Simulated scan of single mutants.
Amino acid sequence: MTSLNQSQQQRQALRKQVRQARRALSDDQQRCASEALLSYFCESSEVKNASRIALYLSVDGEIDTQPLIDACWQQGKEVFLPVLHPFTPGHLLFLLYRKETPMKANTYGIAEPVLDVTAVCPVTEIDVICTPLVAFDAQGQRLGMGGGYYDRTLTTKGLKATPIGLAHDCQQVERLPVEAWDVPLPHILTPSRHWRW
């Protein structure tokens, strides 16, 4: 029990440390990082071959995903955003997102599309799922906010989507404490490189 508590304490400390680091980035640093990330995103064969891409809206110093969303729209790709599942706590739905999509704040204060069953896409029909993360290591392990939403999504039966983590370079740590439920990522994009495992 002690080791689990110790691991959770380490994870919480890392979350705090890395979130502070990315929030400390200036507007110029954020803009440059987002532009550099966009080039890796657009050059990725996984993205080039995808027609349905799940993205998310950046908060809390996360690297800006709006340029990625705009690039997908320009290329005629369908963009989907996560919505907290109204009946199954801890799970996500993915809704089609367009410029005119009505939005609302969820329980975490994050903007998400207003629930519309006609806009829901089964996660098994999405080609690429871009995942937010707080920290990552050189083994492809991802540390999220602790809710497990994306870990559950990425273990969905029949999932064919390629998961791609998006992060600032300052979010890389030497090694993450890993739990049994953690799902490592095959790809992580940062402003300086495309990590592949």
Rank of each mutant, 00 (worst) to 15 (best):
P132E: 07
G146K: 05
D127S: 06
G140S: 01
E78K: 12
V47A: 08
V120C: 07
A105Y: 04
T101M: 01
D127W: 05
F41M: 02
V120W: 04
A54S: 13
I129F: 15
I110K: 07
Y97C: 04
K77N: 12
V134S: 03
V128E: 08
Q141R: 15
H91C: 09
T107C: 07
W73F: 09
V123F: 03
F94N: 10
I110T: 05
T101H: 05
I53W: 09
Q75G: 14
I53F: 08
A105D: 02
D127Y: 07
N106C: 04
I53P: 13
T88K: 15
E125A: 10
L143H: 03
T131H: 11
S44G: 05
G144D: 04
D127A: 12
L96C: 10
P82Y: 06
P113L: 00
P132N: 03
L115K: 07
L133Q: 10
P82Q: 14
V120A: 07
F80R: 09
K104E: 14
L81A: 13
A105P: 00
D60T: 02
C72W: 11
H85E: 11
Y108C: 08
R142A: 08
V123I: 12
H85V: 09
C42A: 09
P86H: 12
P132S: 09
E43G: 11
D60C: 06
G144L: 03
S45G: 01
G90M: 15
L93A: 11
V79P: 14
I126P: 06
L93Q: 15
E43H: 14
Q75S: 12
N106G: 04
G144N: 06
P89S: 15
I69F: 07
V59M: 06
L57N: 01
F136Q: 02
D70S: 12
P89H: 13
I63V: 15
I126A: 02
F87L: 15
P113I: 06
A135R: 14
V134K: 11
E46C: 03
A111W: 07
T124L: 00
T131W: 11
G144Q: 04
L68G: 08
P89A: 14
C72N: 05
G76E: 12
G61Q: 08
C72E: 04
L115Q: 07
L96K: 14
I129G: 08
F87E: 15
I69W: 01
M103V: 00
P102V: 00
I126N: 02
P122L: 00
G109S: 00
P67E: 02
V114W: 00
Q75W: 01
P86T: 09
V128D: 10
P82H: 07
L115N: 00
H91Q: 11
V79N: 11
L115Y: 15
Q74V: 11
V123Y: 02
L95K: 13
